[in-house]
């Protein structure tokens, strides 16, 4: 239950280590930053996995096509990964590269969304005929 508090303490400890190493060994302070990021993301992915499993079960029970849920989950995964790298790049001081990562993510989201939009259009056309 109090696991998240330990995680926040870990982030603070990481920050202290970075302050300690910032002048003498900047490369190591960078490495500590990456590891803290990885720990946080590994921690928050577990509840997400639980929620996705539950959603998948509900969708299978209701008998709706699971392709839509898979599309949504893929979109969420893209925003998750993009957020990770954006924060990482912002942390190391290159915000422009982070914005580039965001651009790539947006284009990929559009590409994934196209089949769903196509389904909606086909449905509308069938309704009109």
């Amino acid at each position: 239950m109090m696991e998240w508090l330990r995680l926040i303490l870990l982030i603070v400890v990481g920050h202290l280590f970075r302050l300690l190493l910032k002048d003498q060994a900047p490369l190591f302070s960078f490495a500590i930053g990456i590891v803290v990021f990885i720990f946080v993301y590994l921690y928050i992915i577990e509840p997400l996995a639980h929620v996705f499993n539950l959603l998948h079960q509900f969708i299978v029970m209701s008998g709706v096509k699971t392709t839509y849920l898979v599309t949504i989950i893929k979109m969420m995964s893209i925003s998750y990964i993009v957020h990770f790298f954006q924060l990482l790049l912002k942390d190391t001081g290159s915000e422009a590269l982070g914005l580039l990562v965001e651009l790539v993510g947006m284009v990929m989201l559009l590409v994934i969304a196209v089949p769903v939009i196509e389904d909606v259009l086909v449905f509308i056309v069938a309704l009109l005929d």
């Binding site: 060994a25 490369l27 990456i34 590891v35 590994l42 997400l48 989950i73 893929k74 995964s77």
Partner: peptide
């Protein structure tokens, strides 16, 4: 010495990153 130390640390970081990416692939149904 600084270079060698950084390479050792980078190896550790890369292992962690691999773990994270494997977990992402499992969870997000790729």
């Amino acid at each position: 010495i600084t270079l060698v130390g950084f390479i050792i640390v980078l190896m550790m970081v890369i292992n962690q990153l691999l773990q994270l990416f494997n977990r992402i692939q499992q969870v997000f149904l790729f």
